[in-house]
Amino acid sequence: MRRLVEADIDLAPLMNVFFAIVPMLLLSAVSLQITVIRLGLPSDATAAPIEEIHVPTVRVASESFTVQCPGLPDVVVARAGDATTQRDLLCSALRASKAIAVDNQSVQIQPSSTTRYHEIVWVMDCARDAGLTETALLSTGDSTDDSTNEGR
């Protein structure tokens, strides 16, 4: 005759494991989400001045951003006042250059040697907002348009 026995599963060891794993995972969780901006550095063979006609250039100086695009007047955005306004002005200037060459996705950024890294990233973000996703950083060592690297 079969007899039913009340089974009592001891959950304590499993709970001990959980108490160890959960805090460990919580502590090792990354609070900052790190992403990347992909670039492609030109090799010696491929490094050459960009000869596309309607590629806009953003010159970054300490007091202003200057957007230059063939066929359009230069736009100077003063680096004073509200950052949102500066961003809007820079984005609209880049969108205007994009409008005359819809297929173009390139932009050249020419920082000065003392331009801060976060300012360059900020300009890259503005260009991306304007639909210009491929960035070329121009060397500071020469005043001509020597492309040192190109972002994709």
Partner: peptide
């Protein structure tokens, strides 16, 4: 940054990404 990138390109590392905080 320019010097680091130039060194990377010179060393043959052409695929580079800039780490940023989202």
């Amino acid at each position: 940054l320019e010097r680091v990138m130039a060194t990377l390109a010179e060393s043959g590392y052409e695929t580079v990404s800039l780490a940023v905080v989202e």
